[in-house]
Amino acid sequence: MQAFVKTLTGKTITLEVEPSDTIENVKAKIQDKEGIPPDQQRLIFAGKQLEDGRTLSDYNIQKESTLHLVLR
């Protein structure tokens, strides 16, 4: 499924993900596309910070959801 990641600069990245993907996995995909190390990434969805060990389905993130990427 497709999900979108919006950065603070307003850029939107499109990712191909599965509901079973972990947040860690998603961060690795963002690193592949953008070169941002996962340890600098914080992903926010519905106002919550997403934890590495959880999956997209844990957070009820469905296709075409938009996550927000904040860098630390």
Rank of each mutant, 00 (worst) to 15 (best):
Met1Gly: 04
Met1Thr: 04
Gln2Cys: 09
Gln2Met: 13
Gln2Val: 15
Ala3Tyr: 10
Val5Thr: 01
Val5Lys: 00
Lys6Cys: 11
Leu8Ile: 13
Leu8Gln: 14
Leu8His: 14
Leu8Cys: 14
Leu8Asp: 13
Thr9Met: 10
Thr9Glu: 13
Gly10Ile: 02
Thr12Tyr: 09
Ile13His: 03
Thr14Leu: 12
Leu15Trp: 01
Leu15Glu: 00
Glu16Leu: 14
Glu16Arg: 09
Val17Asp: 00
Val17Thr: 03
Glu18Ala: 13
Glu18Asn: 13
Glu18Trp: 13
Pro19Asp: 06
Pro19Cys: 06
Pro19Ser: 10
Pro19Glu: 08
Pro19Tyr: 09
Ser20Gly: 11
Ser20Pro: 03
Ser20Arg: 09
Thr22Met: 07
Thr22Tyr: 08
Thr22Gln: 04
Thr22Glu: 03
Glu24Gly: 13
Glu24Thr: 08
Glu24Gln: 13
Asn25Leu: 13
Asn25Trp: 09
Val26Met: 06
Val26Trp: 00
Val26Tyr: 00
Lys27Trp: 03
Ala28Phe: 12
Gln31His: 14
Gln31Glu: 10
Gln31Thr: 10
Asp32Pro: 02
Asp32Met: 13
Asp32Ser: 12
Asp32Ala: 14
Lys33Ala: 13
Lys33Cys: 07
Glu34Ser: 14
Glu34Gln: 07
Gly35Lys: 06
Gly35Tyr: 03
Gly35Phe: 04
Gly35Trp: 03
Gly35Gln: 05
Ile36Glu: 02
Pro37Ala: 09
Pro37Leu: 07
Pro37Gln: 06
Pro37Thr: 06
Pro38Leu: 13
Pro38Tyr: 11
Arg42Gly: 06
Leu43Lys: 00
Leu43Ala: 00
Leu43Asp: 00
Ile44Arg: 06
Ile44His: 11
Ala46Gln: 15
Gly47Lys: 04
Gly47Thr: 04
Lys48Ala: 10
Lys48Cys: 09
Gln49Ala: 12
Leu50Phe: 02
Leu50Thr: 03
Leu50Gly: 01
Glu51Ile: 09
Glu51Asn: 07
Asp52Ser: 07
Gly53Trp: 13
Arg54Phe: 14
Arg54Ala: 08
Arg54Ser: 07
Thr55Phe: 07
Leu56Asp: 01
Leu56Ala: 02
Leu56Phe: 04
Ser57Thr: 08
Asp58Phe: 13
Tyr59Asn: 02
Tyr59Leu: 05
Asn60Met: 09
Ile61Cys: 03
Gln62Thr: 14
Gln62Arg: 10
Lys63Arg: 12
Glu64Trp: 11
Glu64Thr: 08
Ser65Trp: 05
Ser65Asp: 13
Ser65Glu: 09
Leu67Phe: 09
Leu69Ile: 07
Leu69Asp: 01
Leu69Ala: 02
Leu69Thr: 01
Leu69Trp: 01
Leu69Met: 08
Leu71Arg: 08
Leu71Glu: 08
Arg72Pro: 12
